[in-house]
Every structure is written in structure tokens, then in C-alpha cells.
Amino acid sequence: MALKIRLARGGAKKRPYYRIVVADSRAARDGGFIERLGSFNPLLAKDNEQRLTFNTERMQYWLQQGAQPTDRVAKFLASAELIAAPAQKNNPIQGKPKAKAQERIRAAQAAEEAAAAAAAKAAEEANAAEASE
């Protein structure tokens, strides 16, 4: 059975409230779960300590048992320093930059390479001038 540590939505319409739960990966988002580990209230201010609460000991236990956190829960755990920060993923919805943006990126890279080459040439000429003296 593949276990996930994920968010289960609660609350009213346009007033979300999430429980952090351990559930079978095949279970529905708001369906049955194995254990409730904490809560997340996105409506509270970011500096409010009640915005994100969870039981650290139980979270570590489930991580040791092989439960995989979802992306959002992994960010929460990384901020609490329970796991390493997750690697950034490419957003498939966002896609790749368009042609003009790619041209700007290439132009910026070419300018950086030219500046580096000019600096290297200047340093080489300075070394040659010192050697000839």
C-alpha cells in the first residue's frame, strides 16, 4: 500500500481549511485516511503560528515508514526542517518561453561570454606586459 502525506480539504465554499493526513494514495482527496497529523489554514496571516500546525513526532514516524509527502506538504516539512527542500519542478502548464524570450536569453548569455572573454584577454595582456618588463 503506497502511503501519501497530503492535504484533505474542509471548510465552506471560498473558506478553505486543510487537514494534513496520511492516506492510501488511491483514496479520494477528502475520503478515508489513516491518521490526522495536523492542519493548515491558508486564511490566516503567514506569521500566525496557527496557520500551520502538525505533530512532528508522528510526521517523522510516517516518513520513516515510507510515506511520501505531496509537493505542498514537502514545502511545509522543509520549512520546519524535517526534510531537505524539494527540487523545483518544471511546470508543465506554464510551458517553455516563447521565441522572443529565448532570443533575449541567448543575447544575455552571449553578452556574458563576450565580457568574460574580454576580461580574460585584458588579464592576459597585463601578464604579458609584466613579463616583458
Rank of each mutant, 00 (worst) to 15 (best):
R36E: 15
R36G: 11
G38M: 01
G38N: 03
F40E: 07
N41I: 01
P42H: 00
P42C: 00
L43I: 10
L44G: 08
L44Q: 04
L44S: 09
A45Y: 06
K46D: 15
K46A: 14
Q50G: 12
R51Q: 09
R51L: 04
R51T: 01
L52G: 02
L52P: 05
L52F: 03
L52Q: 06
T53Y: 11
T53K: 10
F54P: 01
N55Y: 00
M59Y: 01
M59T: 02
Y61R: 06
L63K: 00
Q64P: 12
G66V: 07
A67M: 05
A67V: 07
Q68Y: 07
P69Q: 00
P69V: 00
P69E: 00
T70C: 08
T70N: 02
R72A: 15
V73W: 00
A74T: 02
F76E: 03
F76I: 04
F76Y: 07
F76D: 03
L77Y: 00
S79R: 14
S79D: 10
A80K: 13
E81H: 14
E81Y: 10
E81W: 07
L82M: 06
I83Q: 03
A85W: 11
A85T: 11
K89Y: 13
N90G: 15
N91M: 05
N91Y: 12
P92S: 08
P92I: 01
I93C: 13
I93N: 14
Q94L: 09
K98F: 15
A99C: 07
K100Q: 10
A101V: 11
A101M: 09
Q102W: 04
Q102D: 05
Q102A: 06
E103V: 05
I105S: 08
I105R: 06
R106Q: 13
R106E: 15
A107F: 05
A107S: 14
A107M: 09
A107E: 12
A108L: 09
